[in-house]
């Protein structure tokens, strides 16, 4: 491993996230400090409500912390407005969600094309087809999400995330809506794609069995993070 790849792609220090509730301020993240090295795989596990999805959204720059600092791809997201955070994500950050988040009025191919089109990639069509082939859906390109099974929908979501060859991929409970067998296949696919690229993989899951597959494993409990 070269010196360069050892650079931390995510650096979070003393992260706190509080929200207002009828009973007063509620602390969801409590003084979390975390560094993620580029090219590694990271699992963040924890029970429901432990704050792991909130942590992922802040690390991915989808949200900002109440206090503390986050550096993503070398940029301090606290100093960026929403548009600049979007700019930071463009072409560099990929996402895979529990509920797939495919757009229902687009075919599988069009869903995969979306980030490439937003990036104005001249080879969008070829790349999208290649990555769909990679996830084993070359025969499903013209299907709409409601014509695909859960596992297939998640494969499309993974293809969409990988189509731009992101520097980092955030996966929020990627197997949460799938049965065990399909879930395992999806995890295998994620690791296989990771192995073939230099993408950093950050995965939030309640499935503790996944952690041994990852380079690093963090445990969330009541807003606190432990290694």
């Amino acid at each position: 491993m070269s010196e360069q790849t050892r650079i931390n792609i995510v650096q979070a220090s003393h992260l706190v996230k509080q929200v207002q509730s009828p009973e007063g301020p509620l602390t969801i993240l409590d003084d979390i400090t975390l560094n993620i090295e580029a090219g590694k795989t990271v699992a963040i596990t924890g029970a429901s409500g432990s704050g792991k999805s909130t942590l992922l959204s802040i690390l991915a720059s989808l949200d900002v912390p109440s206090s503390g600092q986050v550096h993503l791809l070398g940029k301090n997201i606290n100093e960026l407005d929403e548009d600049n955070r979007a700019k930071l994500r463009a072409g560099s950050v990929g996402f895979v969600f529990q509920s797939f988040h495919l757009l229902p009025n687009m075919t599988a191919l069009e869903n995969v094309l979306l980030p490439l089109e937003l990036d104005n990639d001249p080879d969008a069509d070829t790349k999208a087809k290649q990555v769909l082939d990679l996830v084993g859906l070359s025969k499903r390109t013209r299907h709409y999400p409601n014509q695909l099974s859960g596992g297939e929908q998640q494969r499309v979501a993974i293809a969409r995330a990988y189509s731009i060859t992101p520097k980092i991929l955030f996966a929020d409970e990627p197997t949460g809506n799938l049965d065990q067998a399909t879930g395992s296949k999806i995890i295998d696919l994620l690791f296989e794609l990771h192995a073939n690229s230099s993408t950093t993989l950050v995965m939030v899951t309640h499935d503790a069995n996944l952690s041994p597959h990852c380079d690093y494993h963090f445990e969330m409990s009541a807003g606190k993070l432990s290694v």
């Binding site: 548009d83 700019k87 994500r89 996402f95 988040h101 979306l114 937003l118 731009i164």
Partner: peptide, 10 residues
């Protein structure tokens, strides 16, 4: 929301 996740600006 997805556009924004994928980096689209306002």
């Amino acid at each position: 929301a997805i556009f924004k996740c994928l980096g689209a600006q306002q």
